[in-house]
């Protein structure tokens, strides 16, 4: 459990859900974690930074903190929001907010991380996309789905550009996982998941850690779907 000893890891959305799971799992494996959220809870052994990923100034502050620790080795972009409403009820503000957090926030953090990572010729970024970048969401959330399509392509394009500088960029695309964002699961497990259950935060955290690890040293630009087979249906 020492795979990440000494590595400096910036994790956004670390206050809740998947981001929180990644931050604690990386810390447990020896990483020095910079946990970023709008209002991050204090955690023993984790360096928290209050920041809004949609603000370029805030993001610069986050990476200044990471540089003070020796520079970011890992970035996990897990901050995200969703607005569930039909297209005709989606306001311009809904669209702007969702795109700002999910897509622009991922870009701003990637850009700041890449400054140090390309200079040091090492680093690894994992974005959190979603299966709704591949299939339509069963409940309408047009801005969210579009933002995740953007995150998947951001991943591939950044991988092509940063690969020659020694930086890997991948993503996970989770299926439904009960978290604050997903809400409380209602009723029976959807029959359209071949593995027969909803995902857990741990189900998503382990593949993210795999993509961060040396076992994935020759994987870049990949969007790894972690959904119990949901997109196959």
């Amino acid at each position: 459990m020492t795979e990440f000893r000494g590595a400096v890891a910036v994790v956004t959305g670390a206050g809740s859900g998947i981001g929180h799971g990644v931050a604690t799992a990386l810390a447990a494996r020896g990483a020095r974690v910079v946990a970023v959220d709008l209002d991050p809870p204090a955690e023993p052994g984790i360096h928290t930074v209050t920041a809004d990923v949609t603000s370029a100034d805030d993001v610069r502050r986050v990476f200044a903190a990471a540089d003070d620790l020796g520079g970011p080795d890992l970035l996990v972009n897990a901050a995200g929001i969703a607005v569930a409403s039909p297209l005709l009820e989606h306001t311009e503000d809904d669209w702007d907010r969702v795109l700002a957090v999910n897509l622009k926030g991922s870009f701003l953090c990637l850009r700041e991380a890449a400054r140090t990572m390309t200079a040091r010729r090492k680093g690894c970024v994992v974005n959190v996309s979603s299966i709704v970048s591949i299939i339509a969401s069963p409940t309408p959330e047009i801005a969210y789905d579009a933002s995740k399509g953007g995150v998947s392509q951001l991943t591939r394009s950044a991988a092509a550009e940063l690969g020659p500088h020694g930086v890997r960029v991948n993503a996970v695309a989770p299926g439904p996982v009960p978290t604050a964002l997903y809400g409380t699961p209602t009723g029976a497990v959807p029959g359209n998941i071949p593995l027969g259950r909803l995902g857990t935060v741990e189900d998503i955290v382990a593949p993210i850690l795999f993509l961060c690890s040396s076992a994935a040293a020759w994987i870049t630009g990949h969007v790894l779907v972690v959904d119990g087979g949901r997109v196959l249906r």
Partner: peptide
């Protein structure tokens, strides 16, 4: 670790 990954 890949318990929820299938069909990929």
């Amino acid at each position: 670790d890949a318990g929820y990954v299938t069909g990929q």
